[in-house]
Amino acid sequence: MSFQIIAWGITGAGHFLNRSYQVFKELKRRNPELSVNTYISRAAEEVLRMYGLEQKLVKISGGDYLEEIFRETEQGSSSPKVGRFLLDRYDALFVTPATSNTVSKIAYGIADSLVTNAVAQAVKGRSRSISFLWILKARSYLKCPTILTGNNAGTVKPAPRGKTALTAQSLKKTASQTR
Score class of each variant (00 low, 15 high):
Tyr51Asp: 09
Leu48Ser: 08
Phe85Val: 05
Ala44Gln: 10
Glu45Tyr: 07
Arg49Pro: 00
Glu72Arg: 03
Ala43Phe: 09
Thr73Leu: 06
Leu57Phe: 01
Arg49Asp: 11
Ser79Gly: 00
Gly52Arg: 05
Lys59Cys: 10
Ile40His: 03
Val58Cys: 06
Ile60Trp: 05
Lys56Trp: 01
Val82Asn: 12
Gln75Thr: 01
Val82Phe: 07
Met50Asn: 09
Ser61Asp: 05
Leu87Lys: 06
Tyr39His: 04
Glu45Arg: 08
Lys56Pro: 00
Gly63Val: 03
Leu86Ile: 15
Ser41Pro: 07
Gly76Ala: 11
Ser77Phe: 10
Ile60Glu: 06
Leu87Asp: 10
Arg49Trp: 07
Glu68Asn: 07
Arg84Cys: 01
Arg49Thr: 10
Leu87Cys: 00
Ile69Met: 12
Ile69Trp: 02
Arg84Glu: 14
Asn37Trp: 07
Gly76Thr: 03
Ala43Glu: 13
Asn31Met: 07
Val47Asn: 01
Asn37Tyr: 04
Gly52Tyr: 05
Pro80Phe: 12
Leu34Thr: 06
Gly62Asp: 15
Met50Ala: 14
Gly63Met: 03
Glu46Arg: 13
Tyr65Gln: 13
Ser79Arg: 07
Arg84Val: 00
Met50Tyr: 12
Gln55Glu: 15
Glu45Asp: 11
Val58Leu: 05
Met50Gln: 13
Thr38Phe: 03
Ser41Cys: 03
Asn37Thr: 14
Asp64Cys: 08
Arg42Tyr: 06
Arg42Trp: 03
Ser35Asn: 11
Val82Tyr: 09
Gln75His: 00
Phe85Arg: 09
Ala44His: 06
Gln75Pro: 02
Gly76Pro: 01
Val58Gly: 01
Gly83His: 04
Gly52Phe: 01
Gln55Ala: 13
Ser79Asn: 14
Tyr65Met: 15
